[in-house]
Design a protein around this nucleic acid. Structure first.
Lengths: 172, 172
DNA sequence: CCATTGACTGCAAATCGTTTGCATGAAGCA
DNA sequence: TGCTTCATGCAAACGATTTGCAGTCAATGG
């Protein structure tokens, strides 16, 4: 088996792993090895990851893919992770950091899949406007931007927007 | 087989079917029965439809599901239909009408899946702002709103936003 | 009007992301 | 320490979408 309680190393300004697990416990959810591994990994990444990426990044045997999916549902339901959809058919997840920066969007390079975070959300006001105009309640929105990043522009690739690439943000 | 050139009936201010098929022909694509059936059906609907819905709406035998998927790719590539993603795992398509109203978003009821079109796109300016701020080129965006429509609010259902319903915009 | 030919279609099998059933295993509590 | 319940691993099931293949047909030239 694996080290039971690694609470040291890699800690770049992120919430301590212990705090994360205690959040789990407080909501009467069990703190299991797979869940700890997932949270520990997500702490390291500032950009959303697909379940496949998460699964590949975890030590082999740390967490079954089915368990991973179940865990992400659980964490999403608890508000500990946020789900993003870049339109390529695979959900992406990001750890919800307690601080500000909570609500944000992304700018995804359709060429190299590089991701930039867009912090200021201009859509909040629009949300209210839209809700009022149509009588809807509890309105939320999904907004993501796609384009070609500076590096890829230089690379000289002939990238017309999204083309029909469904599998990857980029078809390179 | 079916009537070869029905260019009459149902015609509420939409582009004539003949014009649509000629657009196909001009791009050196063949005008086949399945494609005509698809275009004819899409002309009737102002809201985006999933391939399953389109397939179900077409007369049995009019178009195989595989052909439907291939056709939608073709039409999307030609710019004759636009693809929308409501985050429920199924792509939706809408006929691109030559007129204005080209670029628009939707407000989807998470309860009854009712759809309202949002014509004014405030995001266009944001797109430019985002592109400039990060050096990206050919930036596009995907933006959809979700909420509970007036009718569903009355129905008294206890609908907290999207919950974890992935399959349908609504989990009613 | 008929032959030609490559694009298009239907069908079935294959993919991919995601979910679920089930028996075993372990977290948290008495 | 033992119980009870929740969580996990494995495999099979699923739904959306894609693809291989052989037969079919729209567009074209004769």
């Amino acid at each position: 088996m694996k080290k039971p309680a690694q609470s040291h190393d890699h800690d770049h300004a992120a919430e301590p792993l212990a705090d994360l697990t205690s959040r789990l416990r407080q909501k009467s959810q069990r703190v299991t090895a797979p869940r700890q591994a997932i949270l520990a990994l997500l702490r390291e990444h500032r950009h959303p990851m697909t379940n496949k990426e998460i699964h590949a990044a975890l030590a082999k045997g740390d967490c079954d893919l089915a368990t991973l999916y179940r865990s992400m549902h659980l964490l999403e339901g608890m508000g500990m992770v946020k789900r993003f959809d870049f339109g390529d058919g695979a959900a992406r997840f990001e750890l919800v950091t307690g601080d500000a920066h909570a609500h944000h969007h992304h700018l995804v390079c359709t060429c190299c899949a590089d991701i930039v975070e867009i912090d200021d959300c201009f859509a909040a006001e629009l949300e209210a406007r839209v809700a009022a105009a149509h009588g809807f309640k509890t309105v939320t929105h999904k907004l993501e931007f796609f384009g070609v990043c500076p590096d890829c522009q230089q690379a000289g690739h002939s990238h017309d927007k999204a083309k029909r690439s469904r599998r990857k943000p980029c078809g390179c």
